[in-house]
Nucleic acid binder design. Structure first.
Lengths: 247, 247
DNA sequence: CTGCGTATGTGCGCTGCCGCACATACAGGC
DNA sequence: GCCTGTATGTGCGGCAGCGCACATACGCAG
């Protein structure tokens, strides 16, 4: 957790060659993202793409009934707002800050200009977008077939991968909203994990004690999504090793 | 169902201006897709993109347990194999022919050449890909919150939109595989729909009798996905009105 | 027409999750 | 150090969907 935030904490930005990065750098704006902030919602025109460094954003769907479900999460491995360069401009989902932190944002016009000009940036963003699709479609299958406890494990692991910290700051209520289940269901599953020594928690804080334990209790979806993300971004070279090496 | 298949039956191909289309046309190969054929599976390098005309393809995930679930379907409104131009080359899902029919296939090299050369084709394919993402993420939420009957209605409506025929040729067993539920669950839901006069079926054939009825029993996901697809491909102009006008 | 393979119908007990209604206990602000 | 809002624990009945075991019936191949 460096005192001075750097765009290089975001894997996509860090993967750009210096020449390309220098063109974008002047237009990158560091913003603080408080918990719960909505970066976009259905039908609202997106103005910026967000490259998270320490923040985590959930892409979630809110149904007519009020129920919600996360289709994917975005941390320092990715970017929020792919619909800008995909051409749709808006989406049917919302993007909500799930873990407070920072992100660099880029005005859509600069993003588009570089996307159309630079084959490398385009290639990078499209490959990331495919990883995002993998996450979404795997979540669809996971929601159908796996238990709350398995999904909680998956969610905790994916989230921890993005913050590189032992302790996550989030309430069970919020997790329930992401997974699309009852808060009580999360309480029960978390209780099991705590008794098993995998995690420990207190009022809004969850510490991961035993990653291997979580992995074995998780469904296959965690490993699959993680592997696919690694594959799709594996051949990119990092400009600096600052935030590279990844976990 | 014209006796002579034409690439224009596929909305994406039909949306290309003549100049662009003429470049691709020599490389489009008409192929018959029998029920159950697997166009690709996890980790297998894709050789062709498929533009369905009368066939429908399911993108589905098969879990370790053997259970499966569809994350999206592709008919004449789209293309199978977006991972080719997204840069991933492979996916974690499979593509299986759900309704036998025809498609035009295009070798990856020609596809990539035109994708990189023509801004219009690129724009078209990327916008379609965003529609596909909408379908995937909506399916994730739908799988979490909606009943088997609601999902069956959604599935029937989406499928019928793609074939423009009253009668679908598919067994309840296969539908169950797509939705990721038990075959008996589909039998029960289909029985309800039949008693309500929305559909009628016999051994592998389902006829839609009352679309409005299905829509009212369906979850919001059907209308949302359909609307978003229409929006994303609305500004494209069709070269010929043959297959345009949409349903 | 007959037979067989396959598609559909139906009934069972079981389980995981829901919706609700609380009880408890933590943590920051005064 | 107390108070209060909020986070977590727990127990209930209910139900949708599961897994299994069959019964039935359609329709094509012979």
């Amino acid at each position: 957790m460096p005192a001075t935030p750097s765009p290089n904490q975001n894997h996509l930005l860090a993967a750009l060659p210096s020449a390309e990065f220098e063109l974008l750098a002047p237009h990158l704006e560091l913003v603080a993202l408080p918990l719960g902030e909505m970066l976009y919602e259905p039908d609202r025109q997106l103005q910026h793409a967000y490259f998270p460094t320490t923040a985590i954003i959930s892409l979630l769907h809110v149904m007519e009934s009020g129920a919600s479900a996360e289709s994917a999460g975005v941390g320092n491995e990715g970017v929020v707002g792919v619909s800008l360069f995909m051409g749709g401009e808006t989406t049917t989902s919302s993007a909500v800050v799930q873990t407070a932190g920072h992100a660099y944002r880029l005005d859509r016009r600069w993003l588009m200009q570089e996307f159309n000009r630079s084959g490398l940036l385009q290639r990078l963003l499209l490959r990331y977008t495919q990883a995002l699709m993998t996450q979404m479609s795997q979540t669809a299958a996971c929601n159908r077939h796996h238990s709350v406890e398995q999904q909680l494990c998956r969610w905790l692991l994916l989230t921890q991968d993005r913050v590189a910290q032992r302790e996550l700051v989030i309430t069970q209520e919020l997790i329930a909203g992401m997974l699309g289940v009852r808060r009580e269901g999360v309480t029960e599953a978390a209780g099991n994990l705590q008794r098993a020594g995998c995690i420990s928690y207190r009022r809004g804080h969850i510490a991961v004690l035993d990653r291997a334990g979580l992995e074995s209790r998780s469904c296959e979806c965690y490993a699959l999504v993680k592997k696919e993300l690694a594959r799709l971004l594996s051949d990119v070279r990092y400009r600096q090793e600052a935030t590279a090496a990844g976990r």
